[in-house]
Amino acid sequence: MEFAIRTEHLTKIYASRLIAVNDMALEVPKGATFGLLGPNGAGKTTTFRLLLGLQRPTAGRAEVLGQTCGPNAVGVRRRIGYLPTNPKLPGNLRPTEYLDLLGQLYRLPHSVRKPRLASLLRAVGLLDATDQRIDTFSTGMSTRLGIAASLIADPPLLLWDEPTAGLDPAARRFTLDLIRQLGPGRTIVIATHILSDIDQICDHVGVMHEGRMVFCGSMHDMKRRLRCDDFHLDLDGPPEQIDRLARQTGELEGVEAQLRGSHTLVVRVAEKRGRAEALAEVLTLAAGADLSLQAIHSGRNDTENAYLQLLQEDIAHGFHRFDLAVRQPDDAVRGNPAP
């Protein structure tokens, strides 16, 4: 498998003795939409800054598209489109001037630069704001301009740090749709702590906690880690019918049913029973009871649970997290937390 990003024992300790990134092994496959998850202060932004060469690692190394990262790795930065959290952009410029400046930094010829910046401003919905100075922009507008800036050179790798932070629902929806559209043919790494965003757009995920990569693998692997086998059925109909359905469901073999509120039925399937088969029987009963099914959620697909479980496991490991043996880079990829 080819990797767009590969780090080995990457460590960053600040002068204030804060360990921001701790012996991190990260491998992002080429073409993946990778979600970098972690609570505030987990080291996500520092990881991005190390990859961009804005900071020097205390130990270890990082490679982006086969090139080593560092302050003078101009070639690496040429292939990265970076969107910082709430980007601080030159306030005295207008959007076209800023994008034009960035186009020059990427050494794009005039004939490519001008049409591209116009189409990017149109794509991010800032055409109406081209005569405004950037310091008059709202958070959402700055983020949109930051997105356009990260795409000006059409780079093969995008590093977006909390792209939906501070955005209203419409802007958030726009950003997530854009990520989906950009996905094919590009590697996208999104750092966030908003789990629903990751759930919607990412096919690979890495979970960071206290500077360490506690999980790195596919979304499928992460969700499989969940222990619970619940279905939540949101039903519409008379409460007495829903109550009767709950009783009938509870009588099925290997199935437990419990009402949560007046319209939600929680169905728990035992290990020995096939989930699909059990669910089919419950749905047949619901159809027979003349109840309307509003929504169905599966506990197995709950990314939030998986994420919280990983963090709890990492905390519970306590001193066992200290690893005397030199960890191999593929330890994290196999989807296992540190011992």
Partner: peptide, 12 residues
């Protein structure tokens, strides 16, 4: 703004 705006781009 220097880091966000300029030095994260291909500038030595």
């Amino acid at each position: 703004s220097l880091a966000d705006g300029l030095l994260s781009r291909p500038v030595a």
